[in-house]
Design a protein around this nucleic acid. Structure first.
Ligand SMILES: [Zn+2]
Ligand SMILES: [Zn+2]
Ligand SMILES: [Zn+2]
Ligand SMILES: [Zn+2]
Lengths: 195, 195
DNA sequence: ATCAGAAATGTAATAACATAACATTTCGAT
DNA sequence: ATCGAAATGTTATGTTATTACATTTCTGAT
């Protein structure tokens, strides 16, 4: 499977179509990267995320059960926000309907282990790009294509932490989400206001 | 009405009880401030917020109808997160049940006019402290008492904006919410991890 | 290998949050 | 007074999440 940056949420115009057709599967060894979503090999992206999850859970002595692994795999199918009820539908078959608590419990586990992030402004979830270490991240959420890029800028999170502390506040968690248009959707969205 | 910083969400121990009893109504002229929630005159806080809303809506040629004003007034009853269904219940009487769309439409108007902020991580709302000018804010949300402090640090919002732009991202809106313990709830919560 | 407790999953019901669609009322300008 | 737009009322339904309890699976001790 290839990861298309321009999703069908935002039907691309002719200008973008050629870009999409230009996407190609890369077979050389490379690092996982969400910064070049048009060209990266997303099969490898998924495989790497699952391997890393297996490794971390083994290391931590927690169980990445088949169900939890399956939910994580579904979340990693693309770089867009995934909703809990999407997962319920995707995991259900004619034989067997998955019920909400099943999915919510798996999500709870994955959140606890830092394998996914919850996107508060969308009631959705996304795979974490750097699950080995706990971190505060900044999420860039494109309203055009729905893709999410995870930033992990310590300078930003530290600045916010300091600001909160300067008001006597003890920080548990930061929620930093930016809504807007990603580089590939800016042309299709609105042009820059300045002229 | 006085604004108690320690709410009944987090039953205060004896150490805090005296602090609560120490809260007093201030009658001197003062600026609205959420930075000293124990001592500020919250009646004046509400009145000022409503006056400001009247003024801004008149200036902008939009209508702060009785319903919208009433919803804003309820949101300003304290400095804690208010939920939409709280408002529905508070506005309903034995004679008349307020339906969800009524409240959600009022909230939509108040959000558009920048008179309230939505707190994404809580599905809740809070009165805006500086509604005259559009701004990106940072919200400090206490898990102890539920109170919310609004920060408006341009250095922070500009830093986040620059970071997003450096990734080619066009920013529409920033969502910055910090969960933790406010100065008055830190003692009652957990002690500092360092020793 | 067997058993007991803990962890995980299954299931039913319901709570909590939000919107769509359409009817009626109110407002403000002519 | 009349008309169109804006606001509100009403019904129904869609979406997200949790509670409570039953059953199954796993793990470690015997
Ligand atoms: Zn990918
Ligand atoms: Zn992450
Ligand atoms: Zn106040
Ligand atoms: Zn504000």
């Amino acid at each position: 499977m290839l990861c298309y940056y321009i999703s069908d949420i935002n039907p691309a115009g002719p200008a973008n179509a050629s870009v999409i057709l230009g996407a190609k599967r890369m077979t050389t060894t490379q690092t996982m990267s969400t910064s070049d979503p048009l060209t990266h090999d997303h099969d490898q992206c998924i495989a790497r995320a699952l391997d890393e999850a297996e490794r971390l859970c083994a290391q931590r002595g927690v169980r990445l059960t088949p169900l939890r692994r399956r939910v994580l795999e579904e979340i990693w199918q693309h770089h867009e926000v995934v909703k809990a009820y999407d997962l319920i539908h995707r995991l259900s078959t004619e034989d067997h309907t998955v019920k909400p608590p099943t999915v919510y419990r798996a999500l709870e586990f994955l959140l606890e282990q830092g394998l996914i992030h919850r996107i508060e402004s969308q009631n959705g979830y996304i795979g974490c790009s750097h699950p080995a270490l706990a971190h505060q991240c900044q999420l860039l959420i494109c309203r055009g294509c729905g893709q999410v890029e995870e930033l992990d800028d310590p300078a930003l999170s530290e600045a916010l932490q300091r600001e909160a502390e300067s008001h006597g506040f003890r920080v548990d968690q930061q929620i930093v989400e930016v809504r807007g248009l990603c580089p590939h959707c800016v042309p299709a969205g609105e042009e820059a206001p300045a002229r």
